[in-house]
Design a protein around this nucleic acid. Structure first.
Length: 571
RNA sequence: GUGCUUGUAGCUCAGUUGGAUAGAGCGUUUCCCUCCGAAGGAAAAGGCCGUGCGUUCGAAUCGCAUCAAGCACACCA
């Protein structure tokens, strides 16, 4: 790639200069000191290296170092200029056109790194209670998680996506009790949820259990003797609902892991025993405590309550140990920021049980605010609850996925419903999809008969289908040469794709892909407005068609394969 | 009170790991279709990078302090 080529060229020049002893005491210099950046001012060039970082080794002023290195560069195809301590690089036509050839060669693999250490990763996200519908906050984890999974897979890792179902504990009983009330209401009884606030907390008074009650009565006469039967019924219904929604949202898990099976299999008890054996458990006030403070947690945690039951943490420890025992190299969890206090204690338990706590990587995500009519509506309050399903129905799958992924995970996300619905450039996903559709449209017109709207006269297509296929399948780098100068910025943006993928995958920040795709679309729209693709100049036309095809390919890859949204050919 | 996250243009946010004159989009103003999708493009205006010290050749970026916002501090899950 262009960037690597430039860096390589400078590094060899530098090494040769050192060999000739032109740069003073460079013993401490190690390869990798030089980094390539984009110059702020495009007049300087396409890429630049600041040699100031070498000054502390060489004890020579940066401009002089730059001059010396430049003298050792042996490359006539590209332009090197020195300004102050910077060596600027302007790629020659050959290098630019080769980049386009690369896209033609690699197609959907363009941007994939050549040699990375593949890891076996288990990615856990959403992990909600099966006690109700998803809210919009879950939507952020769903979108980000599935995009991250796509990204890491594309990057070369093996990714296993898992959803941990919190189906044990008191909330399931609450669910059953709530369903019981809904069923009695269906049977005509005059009952309702308690109005007293503290008592009401023992129920889920949302409307969503009404259809579940109706469904239950289709196969059952009335209330069962044991409320557990209702709990199980409602739980199953909620899980099915959640799974169906995820499917519709283009989020696909490899496994749904039930917390309950963890308890029933004895794995939780086993875990408690192992912790005991490690000597990190003590008793206080009738409960058993894990000395997590020995491993950096700010206080110790209860592992077994005074009544003999396990805490949520205990199960979660067992769950993470189970992941490790299944042989994963790395565990990545996406958790809401409200769980941040939880990270230290889980890591502590992993370490106490003899595993490497660094294998667990927790991505803490800030929450989502809904913006309606320009006003922020804070989520979390029950009365403001908007379900993910409502949101998707309102703004669509693609827009929801994109909006949920487009911000840094560390910042609270303002989801503006009105904007996300718009079919204009105010809505970034639309802008990007439009660029793709426009590229497709041009490629269609290239091989289509032209009809004059005034006279109705038909004229032959600018290019035959056969010639077009030949162009796309047997690409020759020289073809694109005539348009390289006019498309410099666009080609450089295509070049950037690989490093965006790399950075995004390594920092687990998926929003950079969303940004990139907007920037590429923007460069493409500019190019389109400045240059006619279809023209009588056959060489120029071929060159520009190749370029449009390359842009379309990269947009398509990023949209469909990574972001999991449509790359429409028409809209 | 303690911990985590965030303060950058009127609004929403980037800032490639410390480098050249601080960057986009929206909004505002002006211009661009006889012609491949104007659902687009070109340009202008708009900044004490929350505040104050410090670290060094050099800070939006690192450190300390401080102010403001959000979240969390259970034998709940």
């Amino acid at each position: 790639m262009i960037k690597d080529y430039f860096l390589n060229s400078l590094e060899t020049a530098l090494e040769n200069a050192i060999k000739d002893n032109k740069l003073g005491a460079m013993q401490e210099y190690t390869k990798g000191t030089l980094t390539v950046e984009r110059p702020k001012n495009p007049d300087f060039g396409d890429y630049a290296v600041n040699v100031s970082s070498l000054a502390r080794f060489a004890k020579i002023a940066p401009p002089q170092i730059a001059d010396t290195i430049k003298k050792y560069v042996n490359d006539d195809d590209n332009k090197y200029t020195v300004i102050g301590g910077f060596i600027n690089f302007k790629a020659g036509e050959k290098l630019l056109s080769n980049l386009i050839r690369k896209i033609f060669e690699k197609k959907s693999d363009f941007g994939k790194p050549e040699n990375i250490q593949p890891e076996k990763i288990i990615l856990e996200y959403i992990s909600a209670n099966p006690t109700g519908p998803f809210h919009i906050g879950h939507g952020r984890w769903a979108a980000m998680g599935s995009v991250l999974a796509n990204l890491l897979k594309f990057y070369g890792h093996e990714v296993y996506q898992e959803f941990y179902i919190n189906d044990a504990g008191s909330q399931i009983q609450k669910l059953g009790n709530s369903l019981a009330i809904r069923i009695r209401q269906e049977l005509g009884e005059n009952v309702d949820f308690p109005t007293d606030e503290t008592e009401r907390k023992n129920y889920y008074p949302g409307d969503y259990l009404i259809p579940v009650a109706k469904k239950y009565l289709q196969t059952h006469k009335g209330l069962p003797e044991d409320v557990k039967e209702l709990s199980d019924f409602a739980k199953k219904e909620m899980e099915d609902l959640q799974k169906a929604l995820l499917d519709n949202f283009n989020v696909h898990f490899d496994n749904f892991y039930s917390e309950l099976t963890l308890h029933n299999s004895g794995k939780v008890e086993e875990c408690v025993n192992k912790l005991k054996a490690s000597g990190k458990i003590y008793e206080k006030d009738g409960a058993k405590w894990f000395k997590s403070s020995d491993y950096g947690d700010d206080q110790d945690r209860v592992i077994k309550k005074a009544d003999g039951s396990n805490t949520y943490l205990t199960a979660d420890i067992a769950y993470h140990i189970d992941k490790l025992q299944r042989g994963f190299d790395r565990m990545i969890n996406i958790w809401g920021a409200d769980h941040h206090g939880y990270v230290a204690r889980v890591k502590a338990s992993i370490e106490a049980l003899g595993y490497d706590p660094n294998k667990l990587e927790v991505l803490l995500g800030q929450l989502v605010n809904l913006v309606i009519d320009g006003n922020e509506v804070r989520m979390g309050k029950r009365k403001n609850m908007v379900t993910l399903e409502d949101l998707i129905n309102e703004v669509g799958v693609d827009s929801t996925r994109f909006w949920m992924s487009m911000r840094n995970i560390d910042t609270t996300l303002d989801f503006d419903i009105e904007l996300a619905k718009k079919n204009t450039d105010e809505n970034p996903i639309f802008y990007v999809q439009y660029a793709h559709a426009r590229a497709c449209s041009i490629l269609r017109n290239v091989v289509a008969e032209k009809i004059d709207t005034q006279t109705g006269e038909k004229s032959s297509a600018p290019m035959s289908q056969k010639d077009f296929e030949q162009l796309v399948n047997g690409f020759d780098a020289d073809i694109v040469l005539p348009t390289v100068e006019t498309a410099r910025k666009l080609i450089l943006k295509l070049e950037e794709y690989k490093s965006v993928i790399k950075m995004s995958a390594e920092t687990r920040q998926v929003y950079t892909i969303c940004r990139y795709v907007q920037e590429l679309a923007s460069e493409f729209h500019s190019f389109y407005n400045a240059n006619r693709v279809i023209s009588d100049d056959k060489d120029m036309m071929k060159a520009r068609i190749s370029l449009v095809w390359a842009v379309k390919t990269v947009l398509h890859n990023a949209l469909q394969d990574i972001l999991g949204v449509n790359a429409p050919e028409k809209m």
